[in-house]
Design a protein around this nucleic acid. Structure first.
Length: 559
RNA sequence: GGGCCUGUAGCCUAGCCUGGAAGGGCGUCUGGCUUCUAACCAGAAGAUCCAGGGUUCGAAUCCCUGCAGGCCCGCCA
């Protein structure tokens, strides 16, 4: 909440409760986020004591609360006394606060934070099931960085293990055809290799031998898997770039082995009190750790002494905390147990632990996305389709051609990101192409359009935004917009604290909606309240722009 | 067998942490562009908040018991 407004509300609450106390009323609960007005006095608990029904009490109270510098008016609605603070006396100070570039950001010491996101196995192009990860990860990174933290983003490349060895084998044995995007071409080699493995024991042995070489640190083998993964990754990176969600850094799992970091971790884990051994394989005994399920042994080496995926992940996190004081991981819900095991291991090593953000899988109307069943929707195809749709909508527009192309991409990609970000991450959703392609209502273009409208007003106005000298009595539409604008910092705060991004699209939508109502009811140019209104437009545009940019969506000047 | 997540109008969803008046959007119906951009706005219809119990003046929200769906419980990644 804006500090000016929050102080005004607390003062008003204090003032009314004094009034009520003097009038012999008991202390009543306050709702600071009421459906109408700025705060509400809940009259129900007084009913028994005063032997009156809540509605009567609220009616009395509403009449007792007089207009003042603090309070504008109070009304009774079904036992709730809704109090409206005096926005006229506040408006100038609120606008001043809103215009501050630091509005919505933190005063606290910035933290060094690493956000690991995407980290999809480099075995083929992104499908929509995975798309939630980069979009959420990238936006949380933008959010924390907006708030004032020092944020870096990283993609952990799983380029060792069975699938990496399979891919390397596939690339060495099978030719690619056509000129398509590289990941879409190479995935055929991977598919064929997987088939080979299934059908031919000799090939399977060969690949498994390669795997052992990789894990034991053989430089040639490590280079081979790293190279083939990089080839696949090249195509995948293009998709992320188009999405506007590419991580800044790529950390290769193979490097953890090559540099001997994994080995070191294995030695350290063996010193743990809960470490046990079975036929040469080492594990942490989880009996005392409250881990649900059948298996209470967390193996971190094989019988041959070599590392497992999780072992390398432990080493990776030890590396992370050398440079960062917080590590945030964006993970699919299937990694929940995995993530818990990682925490236990890190605690055994006296390390900090990462903060996971989980999201549910994206399904298709027909069921789960499956490469094998051929039920896949590729991210690339969706991006193309939604951009095309945006482009069609722009066809009657008067803007010049290159401008339109750029806009179509901004709108298309923005709409896609928004569609995914507006839903709480842990809620599973079925990806509905129709719904995602709908560019009306609660969608990115709605807010982008409000932003363009605000820009148009400022363009027409043409002058520098003035300081407010005088102000006319505010209309409902102005108050509503100002009230919403004043809530921005608390939305940011909530989002940052819970690492939940969906509050931002939610807020941006109501801000846009309030702006559109203001736009209808309150003409700016030629208004006798021009000074204030042009400031209000300026602030709306500013917050819309900042909100959209947290979501990774461009805010256009025209559309 | 066990654990975690989710369940809100025909469909999608916010609110759940911190109990107080069920918000949006899509779709449907009605109306609005000589007035700062109609990708907009106004209005209408549409909700046993999964079910049952408990706590409370008051429960979508907290507690218990179920039900349904998702995910997980490998010396795979």
């Amino acid at each position: 909440m804006s500090q000016t407004v929050s102080k005004a509300i607390e003062d008003a609450i204090q003032s009314t409760s004094n009034t009520l106390q003097n009038g012999g009323y008991p202390k009543l609960p306050i709702d600071r986020n009421p459906p109408m007005g700025d705060f509400a006095i809940i009259c129900f608990p007084a009913s028994k004591v005063l032997k009156k029904n809540p509605n009567e009490i609220s009616e009395e109270i509403s009449k007792k609360i007089k207009h003042s510098n603090l309070i504008s008016f109070a009304t009774n609605v079904k036992g709730y006394c809704n109090v409206n603070i005096n926005w006229n006396t506040l408006a100038k100070d609120v606008i001043y606060e809103l215009k501050n570039p630091n509005y919505g950001t933190s005063n606290n010491e910035p933290e060094k934070i690493l956000i690991e996101h995407t980290s999809a196995n480099p075995t083929g192009p992104f499908h929509m099931g995975r798309a939630r990860n980069p979009i959420i990860g990238d936006s949380i990174a933008r959010l924390l960085s907006y708030y004032g933290h020092n944020v870096d983003t990283e993609y952990y490349v799983n380029d060792t293990g069975r699938q990496a060895a399979t891919l390397a084998y596939g690339l060495s044995q099978h030719k690619t055809k056509g000129k398509g995007k590289v990941d879409h071409r190479l995935v055929e080699c991977y598919r064929k290799a997987s088939e080979d493995l299934k059908n031919d024991q000799e090939i399977k042995d060969k690949v498994y031998n390669k795997m052992e070489l990789i894990e034991s640190g053989d430089k040639t083998a490590l280079n081979e898997v790293k190279d083939s993964s990089k080839k696949m990754l090249k195509g995948m990176k293009e998709s992320l770039k188009e999405l506007g969600a590419e991580a800044e850094n790529y950390y290769h799992e193979s490097d953890l082995i090559a540099t001997g970091k994994v080995e070191k971790i294995i030695e350290k884990l063996k010193e743990s009190k809960i470490c046990k051994e079975e036929k040469g394989a080492y594990y942490l005994d989880l009996k005392e750790k409250n881990i649900a399920g059948r298996n209470q042994k967390f193996f971190f080496t094989r019988e041959n002494g070599l590392s497992l995926y999780t072992t390398r992940d432990i080493a990776y996190h030890i590396e992370k905390f050398k440079n960062y004081n917080r590590a945030i991981n964006i993970l699919g819900e299937d990694h929940k147990l995995q993530s818990r095991l990682l925490e236990i291991a890190l605690e055994e090593l006296d390390s900090k632990i990462p903060e996971p953000v989980f999201y549910s899988f994206v399904n298709l109307p027909g069921g789960k996305m499956s490469t094998r069943a051929g039920r896949v929707v590729y991210l690339d195809d969706i991006m193309k389709e939604i951009t095309k749709l945006a482009s069609e909508k722009l066809s009657e527009n008067k803007l010049d051609k290159s401008m339109k192309e750029q806009l179509a991409r901004q709108i298309g990609i923005g709409a896609l990101r928004y569609n995914i970000l507006k839903v709480q991450a842990e809620k599973g959703f079925t990806f509905n192409v129709e719904e995602a392609l709908n560019l009306q209502g609660d969608s990115a273009p709605f807010s982008m359009y409000s932003h363009a409208r605000a820009s148009a007003i400022l363009r027409n106005y043409g002058n520098k935004i003035p300081d407010i000298e005088s102000i006319q009595p505010l209309e409902e539409g102005e108050i509503k917009l100002l009230r919403t604008l004043s809530k921005w910092p608390s939305i940011i705060e909530k989002s940052v604290t819970n690492l939940s991004i969906h509050h931002i699209p939610n807020y941006i939508h109501s801000l846009s909606s309030d702006f559109n109502q203001f736009y209808r009811d309150c003409p700016v140019i030629n208004s006798n309240n021009l000074e204030f209104r042009i400031n209000l437009v300026f602030c709306s545009k500013k917050i819309l722009n900042e909100g959209l940019s947290i979501l990774g969506i461009k805010a256009p000047e025209r559309m």
